[in-house]
Simulated scan of single mutants.
Amino acid sequence: MAEEEQQTPMADQNENDRGAEDDTPDWLEAELQDTLDEDIEIEFSEPMLSMEVRKIYREQHPDMLDRRVYFRNLLRLQAELIKVQDWVQHTGAKVCILFEGRDAAGKGGVIKRITQRLNPRVARVVALPAPSRREQSQWYFQRYVPHLPAAGEIVLFDRSWYNRAGVERVMGFATEDQVEQFFQDVPEFERMLVRSGIILLKYWFSITDEEQQLRFLMRIHDPMKQWKLSPMDLESRIRWEDYTKAKEDMLFRTNIPEAPWYIVEGNDKKRERLNCMEHILTKIPYDKVPHEKVTLPDRKYNPEYERRVLPDELYVPKIY
């Protein structure tokens, strides 16, 4: 089946399929061809699933976004994100993006596509583990502050300080007094971040009850994804309604003008990724940064230099 996917021509479409894509730049066509195998490897995450589970998933998603449309727009958006990266470095801007949502809502997939082609020295992901006993005794926001962006940085939080309003509240890891204190503090904390010059974006990824159940079942039956399931994930299924109430309360009490929430519908992963990336681009006031033309210098040759022959045992065996 993977072989069939690799043979799918992305560029060889008829005029009806392409529609408004006739003005696709030549470089984008070349990139589509060069990265086809790489992107299929990332996207094609079903080969370990049984045919029955795969059939059920496809039946539940009859209107999934066409793969060719998805890849074209993904590459276009990633090219724009590189312009954002250049602008952030050039201007010293500070960008902080929070990704929140239920387990299996697709946050990790969105983050992976956003950062896929960016410089990891500029754009970094923060995914903090459960707090240590020492961190539990600190001011709640203290462990997040060191990870905030400095000038010229983009930071993406894969879950953030909103853990207190979600998992900690629902699972009883925080008292009601602690949760109430969080709701009192977080608006002013975020206003301070915005006043300091940070562009703060907050996204909630929304999926239905049925979609989460289906994705959990897929993880159970897929050996490549079973590591994603934790006892906490399974407990979240039991407490779906508790999480819903907590989410609604969180959105209501922390949706401030300086840092509003944006909800991304996530039942279709491809649309979820593209829609979120498009929206991020509208919320960052970037401009194209001019670059000097890069010229490859000539290599210097030393006629007296002889390359040493290295022993065979230093080389990785050529199995393929």
Rank of each mutant, 00 (worst) to 15 (best):
I154D: 04
D185H: 12
S137D: 09
G166D: 06
A174P: 14
Y162N: 09
Y140Q: 08
E168A: 07
D185Q: 15
F183Q: 00
D185G: 10
G172A: 13
D158L: 06
D185F: 00
L217H: 11
Q136W: 04
R134S: 10
D209T: 07
A174S: 14
F205L: 15
A150W: 00
R215T: 05
M171T: 07
Y203L: 11
F173S: 04
V155G: 08
L201S: 11
Q184R: 15
I220C: 08
Y140T: 04
Q138K: 03
Q138H: 13
P131E: 02
D185N: 14
L200P: 04
V167I: 15
A165P: 11
V167G: 01
R169H: 09
S137A: 15
Y144E: 12
E176R: 14
P187C: 03
L201V: 10
R143F: 01
A130W: 03
L156P: 03
G152D: 00
G197H: 00
Q212A: 02
M171S: 09
Q181D: 11
I154H: 14
Y140L: 06
V167R: 06
V194E: 00
L193H: 01
Q138T: 05
I220V: 14
E168Q: 08
S196W: 00
E180C: 06
L200Y: 01
V186T: 04
Q181H: 11
E211P: 02
F173Y: 13
E180P: 01
E188V: 13
V170A: 05
L128A: 05
A165L: 06
N163E: 09
V170D: 02
F182N: 12
L148Y: 02
R143E: 04
M192Q: 11
E176M: 08
F141Y: 08
E176Q: 15
V170Q: 06
D185C: 06
N163W: 03
E176V: 01
D209W: 05
W204D: 10
S137R: 14
E176Y: 06
E180W: 03
D177T: 15
R215F: 00
A130E: 11
Q138P: 06
E135I: 14
Y144K: 06
H221R: 14
V145P: 06
H221W: 07
H147Q: 12
A150N: 11
E210S: 14
I207K: 03
A151G: 13
R143I: 05
R219E: 07
